[in-house]
């Protein structure tokens, strides 16, 4: 370092905070860049902190954990026969032996709630992952390549987005037997459009940011730009999107099930359990409607709470930059 070519400057580059004579104010050292906080807070840590401060997010997380435990650990604790129904026991009101009664096939409703919840959570999660992966890749490619390809790709998105999701999903569902995998695929394959648009928009806005220009000026190649700068920065949008996708997919399962296009009997998800809800209410079998309905709403709400909090905390990170 040959910075000593300057004359007369107090040579105290590392003596931050002092080194200047009390009545020589003119000689402030440009080498004093000011203090830096002692605590390191990464962007993610900041996001986590802001997330943790959001009470609703914690509640949401709690609800979600509760239902995961309820659905997966529950059956090991609370044993009920979910293999074969017993028509003699059908439509029993809650009482001893059946805390939530039985359904019209004589299955224990509480046990059914656990099994149905597994399917709902799995489909919601898989569908969200499928939609987000396809959407992110599609959006990223479209945004990164740009030009004519981008135009064509986005028109395709316009076309599919113009076809109402529920209608097309139902039509496809009439043809494919209802398994967890097929339902996840159907829901996921028609839900990637929104994330595709989101990611494309994010990539486009990142592309013109100064730090990307800076990397170009350093001689960075395309690959590095994409993998070191663009994608990591777009990742937060993807993560926020997944939670909302889970919520949407669980709602979609409920709709499909309600209309009779859910899992194939005897498999069941929460939506299927509501397919006879209207008649059940008419007959006064409330236990067949409210426990499952409320569980479903709580899980969707939990996902939405978490999604909102994640979005806010990511925003916080970006705002503070």
């Amino acid at each position: 370092m040959e910075e000593r070519e300057t004359e007369g400057v107090e040579e105290s580059p590392l003596n931050l905070g002092g080194g200047i004579g009390p009545f020589e104010p003119g000689i402030t050292d440009p080498l004093d860049g000011g203090e830096v906080d002692d605590t390191v807070t990464s962007g993610w840590r900041l996001a986590v902190r802001s997330f943790a401060e959001n009470k609703l997010a914690i509640v949401g997380l709690g609800i979600l954990i509760f239902f995961v435990l309820f659905c997966y650990v529950g059956p090991h604790v609370y044993h009920s026969n979910q293999i074969s129904g017993n028509v003699l026991n059908s439509d029993l009101p809650p009482g001893s032996g059946h805390p939530l009664g039985t359904d019209n096939n004589g299955y224990d409703e509480l046990g059914r709630l656990m099994v149905g919840g597994q399917a709902a959570l799995e489909i919601g999660f898989f569908a969200a992952i499928i939609a987000t992966v396809i959407g992110s890749l599609y959006g990223a490619i479209s945004g990164l390549i740009g030009g004519l390809l981008d135009g064509v790709m986005m028109r395709i998105v316009d076309v599919i987005l113009s076809i109402p999701y529920l209608l097309i999903v139902l039509i496809v569902a009439t043809r494919y037997s209802g398994t967890v995998l097929s339902l996840s695929l159907i829901l996921g394959l028609f839900a990637w459009l929104v994330p595709a648009r989101l990611i494309r928009g994010e990539v486009l806005s990142l592309r013109v940011r100064d730090f990307v220009s800076a990397a170009k000026v350093m001689g960075s190649g395309r690959t590095r730009l994409i993998f070191r700068h663009l994608l990591p920065n777009a990742l937060s949008v993807v993560i926020v999107n997944i939670t909302f996708q889970v919520a949407d997919a669980i709602i979609a399962i409920a709709l499909l099930g309600f209309l009779g296009f859910g899992l194939q009997y005897p498999h069941v998800d929460w939506g299927d359990m509501l397919s006879t809800a209207n008649t059940a209410l008419g007959n006064g079998y409330w236990w067949l409607v409210y426990p499952v309905g409320i569980s479903l709403i709580l899980v969707v709400m939990a996902c939405n709470f978490i999604g909102n909090a994640l979005r806010d905390s990511v925003d916080v990170r970006l705002r503070r930059r």
């Binding site: 370092m1 931050l16 440009p30 860049g33 830096v36 390191v40 807070t41 990464s42 962007g43 930059r321």
Partner: peptide
Amino acid sequence: REVGLPSKALERFPHE
């Protein structure tokens, strides 16, 4: 050091 920032700042993120 040349730009007048402590070397501990290397571990920080820009927003800090």
